[in-house]
Amino acid sequence: MKRVYVNENRCLGCHLCEYYCAFAATGQSDMSRALKGKKIRPRIHIEEVPNSDITFAVSCRHCVEPLCVKGCISGALTKTDGVISVDRDKCVSCYTCVLSCPYGCLVQSESGVVDKCQLCLQTAEGTPRCVDGCINAAIIYEER
């Protein structure tokens, strides 16, 4: 299965992936209109190693054995064809998944329910937007 991978040697810490991620979620066509004046809640985030030049983007690993799915009390998180997705109608905002994810990849959406990377399968054409938008090809989408 194709997954999003990040090469920390290439990541520049520009945070643009976060903005492309947030933009993808809006489903709009103009980025300025979609994001201007808004606080973004991206499902990919840049980790910065203190006192070093190392930065890397982290998004859902779509684990083979996902702890978030195991812990989900309402059945909102499911795994289909390897992709872990969230059913926003079922989520009860208990945040068990947030606590159990070892990568910190589940986030709270504006409405309070949990949101996560679903590889842009519903929105983008073929490639997740964070991958498309990365200016240094640090984020790649491939089978490994």
Partner: peptide, 9 residues
């Protein structure tokens, strides 16, 4: 400024 979204890139 109409376009800038303050992403700080």
């Amino acid at each position: 400024y109409d376009k800038c979204i303050c992403c700080r890139a």
